[in-house]
Design a protein around this nucleic acid. Sequence first.
DNA 1: GGGTAACCGAGACGGTACGTCTAGTCTTTAA
DNA 2: TTAAAGACTAGACGTACCGTCTCGGTTACCC
Lengths: 219, 219, 219, 219
Amino acid sequence: MSSAANARASALADVIRDDLPKAKVKKDEKPARKVGRPRSEKSRKAIVNAVNRMLLHKQASDLSIEAIAKKAGVGKTTIYRWWPDKIALILEAINANGANVPQPVHKSAGERLLWQIERFLRLLRGRNGKVIIEMMAQAQASPDALGSFYESFMLVHEENLAEIIENGKGAGAFRKDLDTAMAVDMIYGGIVYHLMSGSDELDEDFITRYPNEALRLVR
Amino acid sequence: MSSAANARASALADVIRDDLPKAKVKKDEKPARKVGRPRSEKSRKAIVNAVNRMLLHKQASDLSIEAIAKKAGVGKTTIYRWWPDKIALILEAINANGANVPQPVHKSAGERLLWQIERFLRLLRGRNGKVIIEMMAQAQASPDALGSFYESFMLVHEENLAEIIENGKGAGAFRKDLDTAMAVDMIYGGIVYHLMSGSDELDEDFITRYPNEALRLVR
Amino acid sequence: MSSAANARASALADVIRDDLPKAKVKKDEKPARKVGRPRSEKSRKAIVNAVNRMLLHKQASDLSIEAIAKKAGVGKTTIYRWWPDKIALILEAINANGANVPQPVHKSAGERLLWQIERFLRLLRGRNGKVIIEMMAQAQASPDALGSFYESFMLVHEENLAEIIENGKGAGAFRKDLDTAMAVDMIYGGIVYHLMSGSDELDEDFITRYPNEALRLVR
Amino acid sequence: MSSAANARASALADVIRDDLPKAKVKKDEKPARKVGRPRSEKSRKAIVNAVNRMLLHKQASDLSIEAIAKKAGVGKTTIYRWWPDKIALILEAINANGANVPQPVHKSAGERLLWQIERFLRLLRGRNGKVIIEMMAQAQASPDALGSFYESFMLVHEENLAEIIENGKGAGAFRKDLDTAMAVDMIYGGIVYHLMSGSDELDEDFITRYPNEALRLVR
DNA sequence: GGGTAACCGAGACGGTACGTCTAGTCTTTAA
DNA sequence: TTAAAGACTAGACGTACCGTCTCGGTTACCC
């Protein structure tokens, strides 16, 4: 990831990492849809709700499309029609690809870095964290799924962080010799690795202290 | 993981992280049994070879116990008898839990840190890297498997790194206010995350530059 | 079937066998409707053509309404609206319910029998035979479909044959003690059974010799 | 079918019709099976019983392997392992391929013919008749299934009947110019066609009178 | 050297889930 | 109104593996 992030950092126009397969994003196809029965919003909600209810009791890897369909009172095809894989479905369900809140501007580089990391940590607190980490883990099994995961979740965070670091370097707030891509890998990697190591949830202590520890890395 | 690693670092006697479930490691039961047909070394080798041959063609997640048994000319039970899960089997096969080479002594804290990180990177270069990362990913699905993975692979690296950092802090080589556990998370996390992001192998550039980047973190 | 055929034979006014469920034949409702968008002749042809093209490659039982609709570029509902089931559709497509050619009159009973059987055999020669037999086979699955098949294909042949035999008996050309219904069953059954036994098409030899063999039965 | 039956009649050694695909008959492979867990007789019975119980309520075409497996408390694979298709399974279940009772000898050709037809009719009386006819119908969908049906059910009857007719012709009891194969087609075809025409069961009247009607055909 | 115990291969077992296919119905817009 | 398009629920298909079990047999040891 880092090299791509790096390239991106230097040329910020690039929005899509091209070393990762793209998930087929149906919603981008065309806004003007007219003929045929329209997608049922009721079914969509039933599916998403079913996923969320099930995640209360069991691990993401224990959800089966079959069970979700049954619980949602929906045909399996309806799920397969709208989501390319379980990863995309669950990420949508837990709303992880939440609105890309614009950063407050006019802040110092350091403050922007802390803000961005805190935002990421907030997204991973509670049950969500474990679920998302499971998604990332499951995505390892197939390049398609991996692309799907990155595009819908990780990419935007990487871009934001890389941009902040690059700017900070330019403004002299961060070390000039810092490798942006590696910094991104370390900062997000530290969090991901922590969650993968067994803790079911991020504890408050970690959330509080991690951003500052990360700040030390870039200065 | 970091808090446990931290605790461990302060009290180096702890060998087993106790926030992780222990995998049942049958071979440790040890009481030198005599009766009964002894384990067939031939079968063990056949299984391990089959796994390694199969890993040349396919992803770790695409190996099934069934296929391994067939390829090795072995009953499925023989595999289940000796390995608790696919993770343990594959880790043994690729010999990832390689000998815990003792560090050269009388080095500076910085040199020891670089040496340890390089050792870890060396272990993950080539195909091995992706395979091990897949193991880590699959282990997320079950606490047992996760314990198994940590115990047989990750734990020793964490302990070594934590010890080096603690010593470096004591000797004044590293920052006193550095959080050892978080540093461990970031250093290994950066590598793991990089591999999980899509690169099939660690490129030479990354391997060369990562250790120094990590060194900057702790100073 | 035979008892109904028998009853019919004695009272020739009966056109519909009443031991068979009637298929709902929508096109018979007929009351010259005016309002609404008219049925698209283009679609009708597209559907019929699609069926015929598909029958070149595959068995009738391998055609699905879904596939036909897709191939014809037509909604499934359009098919369901106009044909009660696959059987009716395919029979129409291969035009099996071909015009009920009136028999030449003023012939002897034997000649009329031969002519009728030959007509039936002609209808079943080539690919048509297997397709029609498959229709008959599939119709076994549901009384509705069976009724549909009989009404649109088999009934008229049975009636004709029964009438010829009855007349022949009255004129002294055929055995007086002959059971008309059983004779019909045997004559058509022999052909149907032959086709169901595996031959993909009726061979010339069979077509040539069968009518005379049947004639021996009734004398 | 008839031509093959004819060839067979002239050369009675031929037991297998070769214009039909052979079903893979696993039981013929080898009697001496040693290794591996043996087939569970309990499961076999459970499956066969489930089929029979289900046939009381529903048509053969409405049985699904899935439902049978569930009702029998058995894995689907267990069914697929032992039966090539639903046809073979149902035929075994209703025991249609019942013992090939040897004919009483020293009878006249006519008596033997009547006996054979009555035996066939007896097999098809009651619910069995409709079920078997449905099997024959379903078998039309695939050459494999058709072969399976013929081999396990129809073949022996055809052979017996053909042999009786040939003998009768030789002994002067039946017409010399009779085409054996066509006679077989007509005799069995009459029955099959009758059942396919809608009657749910063979009525007593038909059973009583059909054999004599058939006898007239061959004289 | 016979008994006993754990091993071995083979492969059948009850299950779960997969992703695809089809049936027949429902809900839109377009003609 | 009806046609056409296509989404909907439902559920079977046949396959792949899971982890367990049940065989016949083998290979050590221990007495």
